[in-house]
Write a protein that binds this DNA or RNA. Sequence first.
DNA 1: ACCTGAACACCGTTCAAGT
DNA 2: ACCTGAACACCGTTCAAGT
Lengths: 230, 230
Amino acid sequence: MTEFAVHHVPTRRRAGRPPQALLSSARITKAALKLVSHHGYKGLTMAALAKSLNVAPSALYNHVSSKQDVLLLVEDHLMGRVEVCAFATEPWDAAVAKWARSYRDVFAAHLPLIPVIALLPVTNAPATVTMYEAVTQGFLAAGWARESIIDAVVALESFIYGSAYDVNAPEDIFDVGSLASEAPDFSAAVAHRGNPDAAAAIPRNDADAAFTLGLQAMIAGLAATAGPRK
Amino acid sequence: MTEFAVHHVPTRRRAGRPPQALLSSARITKAALKLVSHHGYKGLTMAALAKSLNVAPSALYNHVSSKQDVLLLVEDHLMGRVEVCAFATEPWDAAVAKWARSYRDVFAAHLPLIPVIALLPVTNAPATVTMYEAVTQGFLAAGWARESIIDAVVALESFIYGSAYDVNAPEDIFDVGSLASEAPDFSAAVAHRGNPDAAAAIPRNDADAAFTLGLQAMIAGLAATAGPRK
DNA sequence: ACCTGAACACCGTTCAAGT
DNA sequence: ACCTGAACACCGTTCAAGT
C-alpha cells in the first residue's frame, strides 16, 4: 500500500450530478399505462411492471412504497384527461355536463382506479388538484356559494363513479332468468326499457341513456336547490 | 371369503335420502358474513372460509364455482336488508329517499361487493330480484311510464354506489397539502365546506351532507323530467 | 355426490448483499 | 442512492384419490 493509494479517490461523481437512476415516477407511470392498455388491470402486476422496465421487482420499491402508490400515479395521470375547459367558456350546466361525461368516460376504462380516487387523499396528486381547482372556479364564476361547492362536486362525482361501473355492465345484467314469474313488473320494465312499444327494437346504449337521464336530473336539481340565487 | 360376504351390501343409503352434506349455500353465506363482520373483506379468503366451516378449501368448490360466487351469495343476502317497504306506504319521493339511504348504508359497510352488484347479472340472485320488483311496483304506482323506470333506477343506483364509497373516504381526502398555493379557490372551498363563516367549526358529517344534497337534487330532477305527467 | 390432501401458478413485499 | 437475487407469506384453484 503506498501513501498514494490511501489518498486515492474511488469512482466518484461530480458534485450536483446525481446518479442516473434507471427508474422514475414518470417512467413507472408510463409503463403501467402501457401494460394496462395491452393486458388490462389483471396484467398490471409488480412483476410485469418491473419486467417491462428491465428491472427486478424489488427495484420498484425504491420509487413507490406499494402497488397502491403505482395506482395513484396512474390515476393522477388520467385525471389530466378529464375535460375542464368548458368551465371557462360555457354556461355552468353545459360545462358540468361536459366535465361529468369526460370524467365518466376516462374512468369507465379504468374501473379498478375508482376505489383509489374515491378513498385516497389528493395530496401528491397534482393533476387531480388542478382538475378540482378548475371545477371550483367554474362553480364560483356561476355564482355558487363557497360553502356548497364541495358537497355538490362530491355528489356529482358519486354519480360519475357509479355510472363508470354501469358502462361496463353486461347487456344481460337485468335478465331475471327463471325468476321472471316472481317479478313480473320488473321483468316487463326491463323488456320495455327505452321503447314504449315492444315491437320496435331500436338499437340503444342503455348505460348512456341512464347516465344522460341522471345527469340532467342532478344538474337541474342542484341548480334549483343549491345553486346561485337568481 | 364366504358367499355371504360377496352379497354383503356396504353402508348404503335408503333411496330418496341424499347424503347429509357438510356444506350448503346457506351455511357458506352465513360463515362468509361472520368472517367479514369480524375481520373485514381482507379476512374473507377461501382458506379462512373453509376453516371456519371445518372443511378443506377444495370442498367449497363443490358448492360454488369461484370466490366471485361466494361474493354473489353474500351480496344477495344483504340485498334483503335494503328497505323497500316505504314504496307501499309513502309518496314516491319519500319512498325513493328511504330506499336509497338504506341501500347506501348497507353497502357502505360492504364496499368490495359494489363491483359485484354493478357488473354481475341478477340471475341466481333472488333477493336482488325481489328488491327490484318492489321498487318497480313503487314507480308504477306513482304513475311512471314503464319504459323509463329502469333508466331512472340505474341512475339512482349509480349515485348510491358512488356515495357508498364516499362514506368510507377519510376526513382529509381533500387536504391539498403543499399544493395549496396552486389551488387557492379549491382550498378555500374545502376549508369552508358546510359553514359560511370560518370561525364556527360545527361538527358535520360531510358524506351525509353530500348524499342528502345529491339525492334531493336527483329525485327532484327525475320527477320533473321523467316522472309521471301531472 | 361430496370431501381430503397435495400441488400449481401465481401474488405483493422484504431484506441482505452488492455498486 | 439504487439495484439484484432470494426468500417469505400468502392467494385462488385444480385434481387424483378416497368414501
